[in-house]
Amino acid sequence: MSEREKTRLVAWGREMREVHDRLRAAHRVALDEAAAGRTPSASRDLLLFCHGFCTALDRHHRGEDALLFPAVAAEHPDLAEPLRKLEQDHAMIGHLVGALQADVTASADPDVLGRHLDGIGAIMESHFRFEERTLLGILDRLDLRAEVADVLGPL
């Protein structure tokens, strides 16, 4: 195995941490915009930030469900239960994101949007920490040949 191939094999854990950090940062920006959302321009910015954050989080979870988790399960069948829990988290977060998007589209009060973002943030952080504890060491050895954006989202 060449050094480049070895580097690619250990990059998945690092890539996941980096994507999680970018999603955390996008969430903080959306929260800040919700807190400042009492002016018309801030409300427009909030819509953009919430939409961008929601889209990025959804694509991240879809990529994990479609590509990453099956690859992990193939090499580590003993992780079936934690992977199932992570997929359930994705479904729950997806439901919460859908409710946020509906309220953003309906131009809900920034306080309502802030509460949505608080709830999503709490569950998202718990999910990310569990996912990182469960998978990072395994991802460093995972032989998955795919584009990072397809597996972990475009962020």
Rank of each mutant, 00 (worst) to 15 (best):
E3K: 07
E3H: 11
R4N: 13
R4T: 14
R4K: 15
V10Y: 07
W12T: 01
R14V: 07
R14F: 09
E18L: 04
E18W: 09
V19C: 15
V19H: 13
H20P: 04
L23S: 08
R24S: 03
R24Y: 08
A25M: 14
A26F: 11
A30T: 00
D32H: 12
A34P: 00
P40F: 11
R44P: 02
L47G: 15
L48Y: 01
L48E: 03
H51K: 04
G52V: 06
C54M: 02
L57W: 05
R59H: 04
R62Q: 09
R62S: 01
D65L: 11
L67S: 08
V72C: 14
A73N: 10
A74W: 05
E75P: 06
E75T: 11
A80V: 14
E81P: 03
P82L: 01
K85I: 15
K85S: 14
E87T: 15
E87W: 15
H90F: 04
I93C: 10
L96P: 05
A102I: 07
T105F: 12
D109G: 13
P110W: 07
G114C: 00
H116F: 01
D118L: 06
G119I: 07
I120M: 01
G121I: 05
M124W: 03
E125A: 14
S126K: 06
F128K: 06
E131Y: 02
R133L: 11
R133T: 08
T134L: 04
T134Y: 02
G137H: 08
G137E: 08
R141K: 12
D143Y: 13
L144M: 03
L144C: 05
V148A: 00
L152E: 00
G153Q: 02
L155A: 01
